[in-house]
Each structure stands twice: as C-alpha cells, then as structure tokens.
Design a binder for these strands. Structure first.
Lengths: 233, 233
DNA sequence: CGTGGTCTTGATCAGGATCAACCCAGGTGG
DNA sequence: CCACCTGGGTTGATCCTGATCAAGACCACG
C-alpha cells in the first residue's frame, strides 16, 4: 500500500494577496492536492529547457529562478528572475507551444508543480481565476513592451540603473541595505543586454559617483535619487 | 423615439478560425449586439493614447492600426501593426492600468468597440473564451520576449530583414508581389529600433544585393532565401 | 598548489547614431 | 501660374557608445 508523501504542496501560499491563485475555491484545492506535487531543485539545475514541451506550471514556494532565452549566437538574454509567489511556465502551457525560455535555478528552489490539464480546467471553470490569470499575463505583456522600448532607445548606463532599481523593488534589501539578490557581472550584462565588461565599467563609475557601494557581488544603493535620475525614467 | 443604427457590428468576423471570439455563444452575441458599437477612424486619428484610461477594447474589422510607445526622449517605438481580426486595448482593460501604448490609425479603420465590463464578464462566464484570451496573451508574450532578445543581440541589418519577413507574413503581398503594407522609412526605423538613415542605407544595400526591389514606399521581396539568411533566425 | 571561474583594466575597433545638405513631389495660396 | 512650403527620402561626413580582444588579478576549492 502506497503511503501519502509526508509533505504535499503548501497551499497557504496560494491565498496570498497577489497570488494568481487567490480565488481558488476549496473544492478546487481538494482536486489540486491530489494532482499537484512539490518539487525541489538545486542551484544550477534546470526546471525546463527552451524548445522542450512542458507538462505543467511551477508555482514557486521558495528560491529564485532565472528565466532566459538563448540568442542565435548562444548568448543568454535574461527575461526575468522569478521569486516565491510567482508562476512560471504558464506561457507555454496556454500558448500550446514548446517552451520559449529556459528556467534555471539561481537559488535552491521549491516549487509546486501543477499539471497543464489542471491549469486549463481551472481557467475554464473558475471565472475569477481566469480573470486573475489574464490580469497577470497582461501585466507581464506591458512590462515586456516597456522593456522593448527601453532596450531600443536607452543607453546601457540608463538601463543598468533601471535594472538595479528593479532588483531592489523585486527582491528587496537585507539588514545591511545590500540587494538581496546577487548576480554575477555576466548575469547583470545578460539582463541589461550588454557586454560583461560594460557592466563592470559602469558599476565602478556608479561607485565612483557614490551612487552605489560594491562588496564583491553585493551591491548597496547609497544614493537612490541619483540612481533614479540616472535611469531617466 | 431612438432608431436603431443602420449598421451594428458585424459579428460574423467574430467566428473566424483564429478570432479570440470564436467560442462566443449565441446568447452572448445578443448581449454584445446591445453594448458593442461600430466605430470608424480616419487615417492619422487616434483610437487611444498612452497614459489615458480606456473603457473597452476594439476588435478591428478593417484597416490597420499602429501600436506604439513613446520613449522618454519622445521617439516612438512601434510595438506592432494590428490588422482586421485582431483585438487591441485589452491589455489595459485587464491589467486595470492606463494604456501603456498609443493606437494610431495607419489605414482608415473600422472597429467594433466592446466595453470593458462586457469583456470582463465574458472572461468570467465563458471558460472557452477565457482560455482563448489567455492563449492570445501568452502568444503575444512569447513574441515580446523574442523581440527583446533580438533587439538586444542582433544587428540592425538582421532585425530589418526579420521585420520585412514578418510584414510579409502578417500583411501579405499584392498581385505584383509588393508588400501590402507600406510604411514610411521612419516607421520602419521605429519598428526595427534604429535611425531612419540606417533603414534607408540598409534597404538600398538589400536592393543592390538583389534581395528586394524598391518603388517608393513599396517593397517587393525578390530573394526570400537570402532575406531569411540575412535575418539569421 | 594548481586550476578554473570570475572580475578588472586597458587598447582598439566598428556599428550605428547624429548632423548637415540637398532632392523631390505634392499641396496651397497669392 | 508660379512661388513657396512641407514632409518624406537620400547621401555623405563625422562622432561616439559600447563591443571585442587581450592580459592580469583575484579568489575558492579540490
């Protein structure tokens, strides 16, 4: 006789204020608890690969996941870093296409895996959930359009400043005021859409201008106003 | 006593194979016909402006609409050209934010205007429609991510070639093989994300290389294979 | 210790942006 | 009817941002 797994998914996180799943009903959770399953991933491992068919979404419980595309020359373009409470992989599930991005674990991650059929069924039968999901995709679409404009029109300097602000907003700062997320210079470059050397040079310029402080990969924002001005929003 | 407008929206177009509205039910059309209204727009006029609140979506019946964002320095970044059968404005309706783009009429346009409440209600009550809408937004999201990668990593030459291919696929060619849509050089530049002069120079290079033929604004693709190669997909 | 990954700095190069003229066609109004 | 204007389109010259190449420095770790 098969025993229950000791821990299933933690459904409490589904009901947090900004969660896409906040309007899920009790009976739907029942259904979910039978089909959804917790999965753990080590830093550096892959949750899914660009071009592969995927069978469901992952709702991130803890950790950070890097979502990126690989350009024709093999260079990675980071689309975003996803954090707990965010849903990844849904784009491919609903557009019914192979994954258009790769999801790689940046910090050890725990997800709740939800099979495609469940997701699709939820959209069909729970209007409020459908609305929340449309809301989410539309918001991401707006951000993507914003980024297209930025990358097409702004200088690398402006974009780097903007990214630093975003990282602060999305991942917060620790007790010493350092950004919680730390990226390699190369990752910063792949997020900004520039060369590693350019990021290094600009970061040290920012440091010289007393806008930021650097301690290895850790970054502290010293002069927020100046950084905002540099970002030219 | 108020008379019926002579022509309401043409709902036949709602049921075409790739329409988001293809799963709308009979009774919902009844409801729609009371609330949706046909609107005509002249070339150059605006359907909505970036930053303004909008009260519904437009389902394009005929014409072409330019969707663009304005960068901090006032330069327009064209996101896409929308054609008959496409829905515009839904992003703002569902994300519940002001419009993040401007929609300007490129060729005289007829739309069917659908108020936000109707759209939201449809998502809530018609699961298949909700699914189609999510499908649509996810597809656009994938395209946006694709474009971010392109613009960050490819040369202007490659992007211009790619845009020409897209324009051919999306708007087709006329009996003389010219692209159906014709844009000013500046619009091409704002679509590719480069300067007008660069577009002009590259187009004449393409012409010298026998890849395309130019007749004013009209463009004919002579060597598709070479253009695909140039796009480096 | 050696070795591989990351970070840094300097030198050089090139893709494109910008600036400046000029052409051309199609209005418009005196 | 013509002078003028305006909005594209084109071409050439120049400049500059940022990519690329090359060489070390600085770890962290087996």
């Amino acid at each position: 006789m098969k025993t229950q797994p000791i821990t299933g998914c933690n459904f409490e996180s589904f009901y947090k204020p900004n969660s896409v799943f906040r309007h899920i009903l009790q009976n739907e959770v029942q259904q979910l608890s039978g089909m959804a399953e917790p999965m753990t991933f080590k830093k550096g491992s892959y949750i899914y690969h660009e071009g592969s068919r995927i069978t469901g979404c992952h709702f991130i419980q803890s950790g950070i996941v890097k979502i990126y595309k690989t350009g024709t020359d093999g260079k990675e373009q980071i689309i975003r870093f996803a954090k707990p409470g965010e849903l990844i992989g849904f784009r491919s599930v609903f557009s019914n296409e192979p994954a258009c991005t790769t999801a790689q674990v940046h910090d050890d991650t725990l997800t709740c895996f939800i099979p495609s059929e469940i997701m699709i069924n939820l959209v069909k039968t729970n209007g409020n959930f459908a609305l929340d999901l449309v809301h989410l995709t539309c918001k991401e679409l707006g951000e993507a359009n914003e980024y297209i404009t930025d990358i097409a029109q702004k200088t690398v300097r402006e974009r780097l400043a903007e990214i630093l602000l975003q990282l602060k907003n999305n991942f917060g700062i620790d007790h010493e005021q350092f950004l919680q997320i730390n990226l390699t210079r190369e990752e910063m470059a792949n997020l900004v859409g520039t060369a590693t050397e350019s990021v290094i040079r600009l970061l040290s310029e920012f440091k010289d201008d007393q806008i930021i402080e650097l301690q290895g990969r850790k970054i502290k924002i010293l002069n927020l106003a100046q950084l905002v001005k540099t970002a030219n929003l």
